[in-house]
Design a binder for these strands. Structure first.
Length: 733
DNA sequence: CGGATTTAACTTTTT
DNA sequence: GTTAAATCCG
């Protein structure tokens, strides 16, 4: 073990040290999972500042998630003693800032807003409606991802038109230029624009490029395998003079090709930068030998990779456990049995465990079981806070006031809360705006000139317009948080939800309060708080950012979200044919290899113990199906795996719902289940049932039949519940 | 025409 | 379990 001078706290192995010290010229570090890549990145930053006396201001370090950026900041703070001045951040946040400063050169206001996926699709929908394209024939999602793919690949609307291959792309080719035009008109950027607009800025304004080229003398890139063509181009532009570009990545962990990540960027780095030095970090400090052997045995099956074998001089550890279970319920139950056992026997705490799955839809079942078992847990993902409807409603007001050109947000709020401005009216306004080359907001101002709108509606629209104007005016006169409070109060968001009184409304009101609380926090944290930059920050929050690792709880998340993290004990669930690998990847070699990399990423998160589970049957998307094991399971090195089948041809599932001797279990979750099929009794209106949670109740309504049958039951205390009968858990009395 | 209520459809991964 | 579309009602 060697040491970096002046950084006695940081221990590095010889290869790591070489990589740290190779400060001049292009460098590619192929860093296997758990090989200390963050350590190398931060040590290098420390080395640049302390040894090479580089001004932090000249160092640019980009990551993909805010969390990764935050971690890098923290570590730099610890080793260098300061973290201010550095340019450490995500691709999107760094270039969003640059755009805010300099995008006026390409016709963008510093108050531009960022559209998320929902806003984007709403805009597309508007455009497609105007073109009389049925959303049924052309899914906005498909159009959106086609356009995104084009933008990430730096294919302009014109170029796209030239390379159309099928009727669908022909339609996209017509929508794409209009979409771009509308974005500009609304002074809005989608996520892809945050990368492609800086490129446009740099090519049209060489003096701006020059400014940033000379500022960023040393460029470091984390997770390089995830960069797309546009990001590559951007880095290339910035680094082309000094070529001091240092990229760290692992081709075996490339799992974002569907988002445009181009694996060629890492595979061909040496071609793009002929002077490149390449370092391989293959010593793993994270996992046991057995876990590494198992992971290696899987990833070896991939064709397109640079080839790398992780090794460790640590202990062998336990074998990798493969658990075959009966169904999803039992999968969950096995997991918490293991957790309880580990906590008891090996003195682990809840935060030592992660449960990973391929799709978010799998989380609900796991969550239910964990809740019942009393194990505290946190879920990363699902509906993000800032994507909740009520939060987005408030944000939409803020967006309109920051940037009245934003027609998408305007449409969202013009009739929320309901003011009597309906779809038809908005349509008329839109047509007028289009004909007169005005924004929708201006159309609201000149509403009197739109003949077909009723006088009363005109008045409401004027009121709305004046209110927005009032807040635009007020914005610079009082503090940001005071201003937002006033706005939320006047619109009556909280009152509206309070009157409703349901639990759901309660939650919505709480979420709005949470949003309100976030604003003073933001103002304290940032030197120059502005509404536009607050909105920017909000738009760029990622799934994993909200994960609080200090909480003592089991973490549930997708395998994608888990990249870059590590846990003593990891469970990977649902290793089934068609689920992991996911169905649509099975006929595509490249997609299948990506699924395999994803599995590899999941496996290499584990430090001490790795459990892999699959269920013989599982309910997915409202239907129960028999399942086969994932082909990846066959690839596991048999010498380091241990397979347990938790049931042995007996038909009773061991999960807690089963009550094999109970009479009349018509509504068992496995209707075709042999042992019950002869005991089915009929259920009709007026029947009495006993539910395992709600107790005794009377059936008051039956709708539909078969798997889609729904029944409504009134329980004691006048509690009325509706069930899908195939999932309901009760006995007929 | 607009608002409210009911019905239907949908889920791969996400900056 | 959530949200968008369809239907109904005033």
């Amino acid at each position: 073990m060697s040491k970096v001078n002046n950084s006695p706290n940081i221990q590095l192995n010889p290869v790591q040290l070489e990589a740290v010290k190779a400060t001049e010229g292009p460098v590619l570090v192929l860093a296997g999972a758990g090989s200390g890549k963050t350590r190398v990145l931060t040590s290098r930053i420390a080395y640049l500042v302390q040894e090479k006396k580089i001004d932090p201001y000249q160092i640019l370090a980009v990551t993909f998630t805010k969390k990764a950026a935050q971690e890098m900041m923290d570590r730099v703070q610890k080793t260098v003693g300061r973290s201010n001045g550095f340019w450490i951040g995500t691709f999107h946040s760094i270039f969003a800032k640059i755009l805010r400063w300099d995008a006026q050169a390409i016709g963008y206001s510093p108050n531009y807003v960022i559209y998320d996926k929902e806003d984007q699709e709403r805009l597309l929908k508007n455009i497609m409606e105007e073109m009389h394209l049925s959303p049924k024939m052309y899914a906005t999602q498909a159009v959106s991802s086609a356009i995104s793919k084009a933008k990430n690949g730096l294919v302009s609307p014109d170029a796209f038109l030239g390379q159309v291959r099928n009727p669908f792309e022909e339609v996209v080719a017509k929508i794409y230029p209009k979409y771009e035009k509308q974005l500009r008109f609304n002074q809005a950027c989608d996520f892809d624009d945050l990368i492609t607009l800086p490129i446009k800025l740099f090519t049209t304004r060489p003096e701006v490029l020059k400014k940033y080229q000379s500022r960023f003398q040393y460029i470091l890139v984390d997770e390089y395998q995830d960069t797309n063509r546009a990001q590559y181009q951007l880095l290339h532009e910035l680094a082309k003079n000094h070529q001091n570009i240092f990229v760290v990545g692992d081709d075996d962990q490339s799992i974002y090709s569907w988002r445009g990540a181009d694996i060629r960027n890492i595979l061909e780095f040496e071609k793009d930068f002929p002077a490149a030095q390449v370092f391989r970090l293959e010593q793993n400090y994270r996992s046991t030998k057995n876990i590494l052997k198992a992971a290696n045995s899987v990833i070896e099956n991939n064709e397109s990779r640079k080839g790398k074998t992780l090794w460790s001089d640590g202990e062998d550890g336990d074998k990798v456990h493969v658990l075959e279970v009966y169904d999803g319920q039992e999968e969950a139950q096995k997991i918490f049995e293991k957790i309880k056992n580990e906590v008891f026997k090996n003195k682990r705490t809840f935060r030592d465990f992660a449960i990973l799955y391929r799709t978010n839809a799998q989380s609900r079942l796991l969550e239910d079981s964990l809740r019942r078992s009393g194990i505290s847990y946190v879920i990363v993902g699902g509906v993000r806070f800032y994507e909740r409807k009520e939060v987005k409603d408030v944000l939409a007001y803020l967006k309109v006031i920051t940037n009245p050109n934003d027609a998408v947000s305007l449409q969202r709020v013009i009739n929320f809360p309901t003011r009597g401005i309906g779809e038809r009216t908005i349509e008329k306004l839109r047509i007028w705006a289009h004909q007169n080359q005005k924004s929708l907001f201006e159309a609201a101002k000149y509403v009197n000139e739109v003949d077909s709108i009723a006088p009363r509606t005109k008045k409401t629209i004027q009121h709305f317009h004046e209110m927005i104007l009032k807040y635009i005016d007020l914005k610079d006169k009082i503090s940001l948080s005071e201003w937002v409070y006033t706005l939320v109060d006047e619109i009556g968001f909280l009152k509206m939800y309070k009157e409703d009184g349901t639990v759901e409304s309660q939650n919505r009101a709480d979420n709005i309060r949470e949003l309100l609380a976030a604003i003073p926090d933001y103002c304290k944290r940032v030197e120059e708080p502005t509404l536009a930059s607050f909105l920017e920050e909000v738009a760029l929050i990622t799934e994993i950012d909200s994960w609080n690792e200090s909480a003592n709880a089991v973490t549930l998340m997708t395998v994608h979200s888990a990249k870059g993290l590590e846990f003593p004990v990891v469970f990977i669930t649902g290793l089934e044919h068609g689920l992991f690998p996911i169905m649509r990847s099975m006929n595509d070699d490249h997609a299948l290899e990506e699924e395999r990399r994803l599995f590899y990423v999941g496996m290499t998160r584990a430090e001490k113990k790795l459990y892999i589970l699959w269920a013989k049957r599982r309910q997915l998307y409202n239907e129960i199906s028999s399942r086969l094991p994932s082909p990846f399971l066959d690839e596991l090195d048999k010498k380091v795996t241990h397979i347990t089948s938790s049931y042995h041809s007996d038909f009773a599932p061991k999960s807690f719902e089963s009550k094999p001797k109970t009479k009349g279990m018509q509504f068992d979750s496995h209707p075709d289940y042999e042992s019950f099929s002869q005991e089915v009794t009929t259920l009709e209106k007026g029947s009495w049932v006993q539910h395992e949670i709600f107790g005794k109740g009377e059936v008051i309504k039956i709708e539909g039949r078969g798997q889609k049958q729904k029944i409504t039951v009134r329980f004691e205390g006048n509690v009325v519940k509706k069930f899908l009968s195939q999932y309901a858990r009760f006995n007929i009395l």
